[in-house]
Design a protein around this nucleic acid. Structure first.
Length: 201
DNA sequence: GGTAGGATTACG
DNA sequence: GTAATCCTACCT
């Protein structure tokens, strides 16, 4: 999938807070095709199309909030519509969006983003994505807003997107849940998994 | 103070 | 497929 340039108008189309006040597995699939925008330290805006997501919820064992609050996962239990950033493997940051409701740990992991006009691989994978957007623990708890300098805009068009639903990867528990979604035509997703299929209509 | 286990990536 | 890498949570 090749995306053309993202316009100023498109990145101004901030998703409303209510969008995130829903179960993670609904938000995750609706985020495919949306735009992540960040104001970089140099003042320039960086934006890209979200092409791969995963949902997590405290009801299942692979979620960081499954065993309750800790020092590092507190944001996940808080207000929907904020970023939850954590360090994984001691090296890589992962970018999540808190969903659903207060005092209920759930969120969507952004796994891959395509930057129009740039190499498809540079933001394909959660760790690489965070690196390109220069997102780290200092952004944990930040609200999704234009004022915060980090936000999500709605899908640029009403074009039909072919979204594939499959199982999550890189986890050892609750592997059976089909809570991963990606754009079928995108070559910049992080990995393939067995049993990939299109969601039923 | 010590250790096991990662929501990963890069390379063969 | 497997190794590198190092922080966090939890246990002693």
């Amino acid at each position: 999938m090749e995306f053309s340039t993202i316009t100023t108008e498109q990145i101004s189309n901030l998703l409303p807070r209510d969008f995130f006040c829903r179960p993670a597995e609904l938000v995750a699939q609706d985020l495919i095709g949306c735009i992540l925008v960040k104001k970089q330290p140099d003042g320039n805006l960086l934006s890209g199309i979200i092409v791969e997501t995963e949902a997590y919820s405290q009801t299942e064992a692979s979620c960081h909030g499954h065993k309750g609050k800790t020092k590092t996962n507190t944001t996940l239990f808080g207000e929907p519509g904020r970023f939850y950033i954590y360090l994984t493997y001691g090296i890589y940051h992962c970018v999540n969006i808190v969903t659903d409701k207060n005092n209920f740990a759930s969120g969507v992991l952004l796994r891959s983003i395509e930057l129009p006009g740039k190499d498809e691989r540079i933001a394909s994978g959660p760790g690489l994505l965070a690196r390109i957007f220069q997102i780290n623990k200092s952004h944990d708890g930040l609200p999704i807003s234009i004022k915060s300098g980090l936000w999500v805009a709605g899908r640029p068009s009403q074009n039909m997107l072919k979204i594939v639903q499959t199982t999550r990867i890189g986890i050892s528990k609750a592997k059976e849940l089909p809570w991963r979604w990606y754009l079928q035509k995108s070559r910049s997703i992080s990995k393939r998994a067995k049993g990939d299929r299109c969601p039923k209509k």
